[in-house]
């Protein structure tokens, strides 16, 4: 069974800091990383391949440099990759993104399962996975923490809930989004890295996907960002002083005043 894994290149969040004087963002380096949750998706795809055979194909929508992210997943054992990239894709919200990715997935075709990370750490929406499934009209399960059983026709998974977990069975083809708990991603291999260096990754834009400019990018988005601002920081930092007992007494009385305890 072929598995398609959706991968996103994101700015490394640790590199984003706030300049306290100007209250603006400072970026440390411009390193793009693979969205960490997508690595769990890649690993799960590889495990399914090892169990059932077939190929793992990675797909990404992003600027031309997202090619690096796809090469990186190939070094982990992914067989093939496709990049969806077009100037027209810029500014896409989750709706336009899922439309575009669904088109790409359809063009790749022949899959039994699509796996996405539960969310991307830049947007944190967790919306694209379910929306792709809707656009492809296939069943999905979000926040999967364990695949209990998979055959070529059905899939039984555990879905993480706020108060525990659900066990669901879906027919294939289907889509799942996975959480960190599902596995521990492997290391890349040297042969994988060598392949990643030389492999040809096709780039599909609007004409290859057969999608109109009105459906993608900023134009195809239902939502618009109208304002970006830096959040209020806790400016009232107060370092308590004195002996341990004294500090604790101060803390307790302050929390008491604030009706926190």
């Amino acid at each position: 069974m072929n598995v398609i894994v959706c991968v996103k290149q994101v700015p490394e969040t640790t590199g984003v800091k706030i300049n306290k004087d100007t209250n603006t963002l400072i970026r440390e380096g411009t390193k793009g990383i693979i969205n960490p949750f997508d690595m769990y998706a890649v690993e799960e795809g590889l495990r399914i391949k090892e169990k059932l055979g077939g190929e793992v194909i990675a797909i990404s929508m992003g600027p031309p440099q997202a090619d690096e992210a796809l090469r990186e997943v190939i070094s982990y054992g992914v067989d093939d990759a496709v990049l969806l990239s077009d100037l027209a894709f810029a500014g896409a919200d989750t709706l336009a993104t899922s439309r575009t990715l669904a088109k790409g997935v359809k063009k790749v075709g022949g899959f039994g399962l699509i796996i996405c990370g539960k969310q991307a750490i830049d947007g944190d929406t967790a919306q694209v996975g379910p929306a792709i499934a809707e656009k492809l009209d296939i069943p999905y399960v979000a926040f999967v923490r364990k695949i209990r059983d998979i055959s070529n026709h059905t899939l039984v998974v555990e879905r993480m809930m706020d108060d525990g977990y659900d066990v669901l069975e879906v027919t294939l083809p289907a889509l799942i989004t996975v959480v960190k708990e599902i596995n521990e991603p492997r290391m890349p291999s040297l042969r994988g890295k060598m392949k990643a260096k030389s492999v040809d990754i096709p780039v599909w834009g609007i004409s290859e996907l057969g999608i109109s400019e009105e459906e993608v990018g900023l134009k195809g988005s239902a939502t618009q960002v109208i304002k970006i601002f830096t959040p209020q920081r806790h400016g009232n930092r107060e370092m308590l002083e004195g002996s341990v007992e004294k500090q604790v007494d101060q803390l307790v009385s302050r929390l008491d005043d604030m009706k926190m305890i």
Partner: peptide
């Protein structure tokens, strides 16, 4: 060489 750098990078990551 490029391959040697790859080995270094991979071993370092592990």
């Amino acid at each position: 060489t490029e391959d040697q750098n790859m080995i270094k990078e991979l071993a370092r990551q592990i």
